[in-house]
């Protein structure tokens, strides 16, 4: 079953899982968007423009950071190679484009993020599945009975851990009746995701290390967790004053 899944969605087909998650997540977000005061049209538009920003920004910023390679073959800018892409820069570009669209249309910031939360939660599930299919985000060698054979060692099935965490977070988010205050739903999702990453990164075999032995992803997840907890506390305090 696992090998069949991996065979069907072997790279580069694992990206199908992300596209499917995007489509499903948008459909789910649409169902609940009006309870956050965001119209379906506005939700679809912000996703469309952000996606456009993601694709364009990811390629352009990659080209800018490797300018000498692109100067010699400028047509590579239009290449279908998905590897000519900077995913972090793409996320930044998508966020900026979404922010510009939201402010032009006067969409409330926190309510918009709440409306988008089911999409983010579904994308997390898609990401875990794509990691599983591609064998990336793999675990460290282990002797636990549930270890999986991957890359010539028995390893922690970190992609499965990631999938379970994503499903639980999605289930929790989806089971909420209505957010008591705008922003709390999104911040809860962000805090849970950061906490899951902080915990699960310890079992990864591909961590980038900083300061000699600390895992960079854990450090970033801890910072995100602290920011989200602080922000949710601030939102609650502001709501109480109002």
């Amino acid at each position: 079953m696992i090998s069949l899944f991996r065979s069907i969605f072997a790279p580069p087909r694992h990206l199908i899982l992300l596209v499917a998650a995007l489509w499903l997540g948008l459909a789910l977000a649409e169902k609940r968007t009006e309870r956050h005061g965001i119209s379906r049209e506005a939700l679809n538009n912000i996703v469309f423009y952000s996606l456009f920003g993601y694709i364009l920004g990811g390629r352009l910023l990659y080209a800018l950071s490797n300018i000498s390679a692109f100067v010699q073959s400028p047509l590579s800018l239009f290449s279908l190679n998905l590897d000519l892409f900077d995913p972090l820069a793409a996320l930044g570009a998508a966020f900026i484009v979404g922010l510009i669209y939201g402010s032009r249309k006067k969409l409330p910031f926190w309510s918009t993020l709440d409306a988008l939360t089911p999409l983010f939660a579904t994308l997390s599930i898609g990401l875990a599945l794509s990691h599983f299919a591609a064998g990336t985000a793999f675990g460290s060698p282990t002797v636990v009975p549930w270890g999986v054979d991957l890359w010539n060692a028995t390893r922690h099935p970190t992609q499965i851990y990631e999938l379970i965490a994503s499903l639980l977070i999605f289930g929790w988010i989806w089971s909420r009746k209505a957010a008591s205050r705008p922003g709390i739903l999104f911040l809860t999702f962000a805090a849970l995701t950061a906490a899951a990453r902080l915990f699960l990164e310890a079992f990864r075999g591909d961590s980038t290390l900083v300061f000699g032995e600390l895992r960079l992803a854990q450090l970033l997840a801890w910072i995100v967790l602290a920011i989200t907890l602080f922000a949710s506390e601030s939102l609650r305090r502001v709501a109480k004053v109002d």
């Binding site: 790279p11 080209a63 390679a69 590579s76 190679n81 590897d83 000519l84």
Partner: peptide, 16 residues
């Protein structure tokens, strides 16, 4: 780096 699929463009080859 692993690149699955192609064709690889010249810029991709140069950067890698």
């Amino acid at each position: 780096e692993v690149v699955i699929g192609g064709p690889m463009s010249e810029a991709l080859l140069r950067t890698r």
